[in-house]
Design a protein around this nucleic acid. Structure first.
Lengths: 223, 223, 223, 223
DNA sequence: GATGAATGAGCATTCATTCAT
DNA sequence: CATGAATGAATGCTCATTCAT
């Protein structure tokens, strides 16, 4: 019976988590609407119905708040990847499913991709606590590893070349994804024709995936 | 004959061009050192030994000045691509040479890549005159077309699949390049291990290029 | 009999005093390290292992906490003065001993001098409870009176001029001390040469003390 | 004839100086009313009818603006000292005149004394350009030297002891002045009786000055 | 055309203090 | 009594851009 001897501590923990999420939700909507630079901490505070100072009790800086959005994004990535992996199909199909998920996720939540690109800013780590950076690195590592395991299972199944650097394959897949997103958005930004992302996205995968496969007989070589 | 009826006009034109270049050179060095956000128009003015106001007679805004750096970058890209194409080797070698050039150019002038990524910023066109955007689009189009012609020549030579969307191939190559650069720089930024760009870069091309080739006999298909 | 009718009350009193001292000790070390402006109540709370709110149950404000450090400083002054007085030497030696003590105390605990100078801030009394101000005034009065008694004993012994305003003498001594400290620290702050405090301090006393003495015969007068 | 070839440059220089003085005047009145901490750059801007940004084109920081007030204060000190020196009286009278001037100046412009005490703040130099610190040091040096020359002339006249460290004498005089000001203002601040500054100020000088004099015959010595 | 002094809106961040538990 | 999360007002400073000369 003598259970929950510290009811306050537990509730506090819960409330802290809830409030943190409240801020993150407000932040997501503001950053989404205005972009990082034009977003103001004041608006985030208003939208979360908290005081500005409270935001800073949960996040060290505007940058840290922005980057913290990636925690949930990466969690969703993980779920998507595990979903693709758990589908039970052959490894190449799993990989294709991951790729499709990446694309679908981008269409649904493009702002997360902007936050991902934000990580590219030099000197970012000055504004963010080491713990957050560590967490980002950790989650990214987990996700990359999950996809690498799919590739590895393709190798094990004799489907992919046995000399593949599976981690490198994932890096390349990810790079291709981010690069495509960037290209398409840049074109739209500059008013250049930017159609066909879907097709391009699909084909790019096929081309790349082809290079991973084990050859039964040589393909045509010009030299 | 050789009409020099307007010597002043000609000289003026020349001086204007020289001064414009002066500004661009100063801008490049400042943006390079400080990044776009931390660079100030005042420092660029000082370094070009011109007045701040003069900068605005040549460039509509800080953004336009930054983006204008891409004119020369794209010219260098063009030269690199034409160099690869003029090497006389087979199309796949030409393509590989282009890819190597991209990499080498990044190593030498990484700041141009940052300016390229800058184009991704939403709402950028508000700060830039249409002419500049047009010029960027034009030059990009030229370069993409040049590479696409190499791919096409590969198709014509029976080396690449005849159903290739050559323009799409170039988009994918370019996306892969930019994505890799971004990934590597992000990792460095976050203190994550970020070695092996060179190898990765090389392999990524091989994998991708493989998917472009015409198949003599089918490779292993799992399903 | 030994009434322990209110053991809790007594213990409470003791605990309250101990906790108060705990806070003062933490405050001293924080103010010492950071200075008044850069010190935060939060850090003081952490270092005393108490909650921020608790600090405010003992001290009305940050200012009051800072100024309250002077209680112990003034107690130490009192001990120093009484030590000098109890040495049994002639009054002028006692006075010199006081002066030496002032100097030694500054060398050991310069932060107390900063708190003393802090009293100079206009509008300070708004942030401090009257009781604390009263206590400061009281202790200062006691100390000044003690020194004044030494001067008076010098007068009584025929050593010092009989028309001396002994209280004024002490004011001047104290002012000279504080002024010297300020001058030396300002010079150090501005990177100006600031040597010789010790010598200066010593000589200043001799010059001043000389003016207090009863003249047996006139000294040279120029006019 | 060909005179004033650069009238614009000259006028600009003049205007810059005038505007700088405008700011200093506004700053003096605001700092005077509110004290350093409660003064805001915005109010100084309003009162000088300039934009906030303009203030920062003339002064690097709020601190630098405050401290720059001392330029004019020190100039007034210099004039006062030279006036005392030029009075033609004997050295001790000149010194007394300097002392009286110090006192009068404090009564008229007590805010300058607060700025002088401000120099005591640790870490001040971080907020002030080296040039300003240098200038402060320079002007202070000039003034101290001028007073030291008076003392020296007293020594030369056989009035003061020949073993005097004249520079030290001035340091002590200055310290005594600042210490007295501080003591009196502290007392007023704490509601303690703080009368008699004038008398005290006068007597302090007499006592101190006495110690500088050459003795014709020994005064009473107790030991 | 060139100049460069002036502009001034805009914003992240701090921290002493409160008060519900 | 102790707690410590929440508050939110308050402010120094930047810097792209303009425009009178």
């Amino acid at each position: 019976m003598m259970s929950n001897s510290k009811p306050t501590a537990a509730r506090r923990e819960r409330e802290r988590g809830a409030r943190r999420q409240l801020i993150l939700d407000a932040a997501k909507s503001v950053f989404d609407e205005r972009g990082f630079l034009n977003a103001t901490m004041e608006e985030i505070a208003e939208r979360s119905e908290l005081a500005v100072g409270t935001l800073y009790r949960y996040f060290q800086s505007k940058e840290e708040l922005y980057v913290s959005l990636l925690f949930e994004a990466m969690e969703m990535f993980r779920e998507g990847i595990e979903g693709a992996r758990g589908s039970g199909g052959p490894p190449n199909e799993q990989l294709r499913a991951v790729w499709r998920f990446f694309y679908a996720f981008y269409r649904e939540q493009p702002e997360y991709y902007r936050a991902l690109m934000f990580l590219h800013n030099e000197g970012l780590s000055d504004a963010i606590s080491p713990g957050v950076i560590q967490e980002i690195n950790h989650r990214a590592g987990v996700n990359f590893r999950l996809v690498a395991e799919i590739v590895q299972s393709g190798v094990d199944a004799g489907l992919y070349r046995s000399d593949l650097d599976t981690r490198g394959v994932v890096d390349v897949l990810w790079s291709l994804l981010m690069g495509l997103v960037q290209l398409i958005e840049t074109r739209r930004n500059l008013g250049a024709p930017a159609d066909m992302l879907e097709t391009l996205h699909y084909e790019a995968f096929e081309w790349l995936e082809c290079g991973l496969r084990r050859r039964v007989s040589a393909s045509v070589r010009a030299n």
